[in-house]
Design a binder for these strands. Structure first.
Lengths: 202, 202
DNA sequence: ACCTGAACACCGTTCAAGT
DNA sequence: ACCTGAACACCGTTCAAGT
């Protein structure tokens, strides 16, 4: 019973990723209150001290989790932009739709990412997400679709609007609209995005 | 020593408010992690079980705290609007400045208010804040300053933008701008607000 | 190297008991 | 009515000890 087995590798040798996946499931299922390091360890089938071999403390695990979220967000924005290559305005609208959809399908993850409770280089991940938006704006300026201004300023205007919508949606605070469902949310995002593009002024 | 004293009223008789004030100080000083019900009780000089005479549980205290924040936000927006009565665009810009300033001076409170972790009728408080913005938009439409559309749609466009900016500022995630300080933030808010008003399109 | 189990100081919540 | 103190099941973190 000892020679037949491969080297034991104490639990799959990939505990780090197993912990992160368990943490994400716990987070989206039970909220931040349910995401205890001990529960993550239980869920992964190891002792409550085992995670400390892979993460300095709970904050380090949350930061790693948050990083995953930022990577997905960046890719979602880039995919949306790639789907409307010849039309900067449509790129912007679809990037917003992707942004808000992700927030609504992973609300707890979004609150973790933008909750600001995390130490460490979260800023870098956020920066790369912003950069994906800024690229759309720079291309749009180059094509003459957007105003000839600092691309970062336009990107900030677009980002804050989509981000505010996403955070309100993630927190379930957009219920003043009688419409519901994903299609209704997409419509709301498009309406807000169009107002950002064309302005509110008469 | 017994007849001279007024009826004892076990700790000021106003423990409810004392607890809320202690909670707010703890929140802004030590973050959400430092805001334990036991720490609040210690800070108020009562036993750790005393708060349960005034709040059903910890969530109820957080909700009451959150309510205070929404009241302040609503008043701040109304005051900003009152300061520029004859100019709807300026009303909107100054409301945004007030919104973001409050978020930056009370970041933990803002995250509590919009974190979405709270049960109960938080929606109503948020609604009243949104209503303060919607009023500015309706007035602006009536005066011909804003587009002749559904006031709620315009208010949503303005709100999401200011809210996104406020949340990013509260989370310390606007550091990509090399400028710092309150004046720099006000400038950023005004720039974003102007882009919302006049649009991004060429 | 990787994991365990006991230990410590903390939590939220409950409940009998005191005045 | 209002508050206390002990109790319970949970945390995050540390650390000696095991293989």
């Amino acid at each position: 019973m000892s020679n037949r087995e491969p080297p034991v590798r104490y639990h799959h040798g990939d505990l780090c990723n197993v912990l992160l996946e368990a943490a994400e499931i716990l987070l989206e299922h039970s909220g931040p209150a349910g995401l205890s390091l001990r529960a993550v360890a239980r869920s992964a089938g190891v002792s409550h001290a085992a995670p400390y071999r892979h993460f300095r403390d709970k904050a380090a695990l949350l930061e790693a989790l948050s990083r995953r979220g930022f990577e997905r967000l960046q890719h979602a924005i880039e995919r949306a932009a790639a789907g409307a290559m010849q039309n900067p305005e449509q790129q912007l609208v679809e990037a917003g739709v992707a942004y808000v959809r992700l927030a609504l399908s992973h609300p707890e993850m979004f609150r973790l990412m933008f909750g600001g409770v995390l130490p460490g280089p979260v800023g870098e991940y956020r920066q790369s997400t912003f950069e994906a938006l800024a690229k759309i704006m720079r291309d749009g300026i180059a094509r003459g679709a957007f105003r000839q201004r600092d691309g970062e300023e336009l990107a900030l205007a677009a980002w804050t609007s989509m981000h505010g919508l996403a955070m309100l949606a993630a927190a379930g605070q957009l219920s003043f609209s009688p419409r519901d469902g994903v299609q209704a949310l997409d419509d709301t995002v498009r309406a807000v995005a169009r107002n950002v593009i064309y302005g509110i002024a008469q």
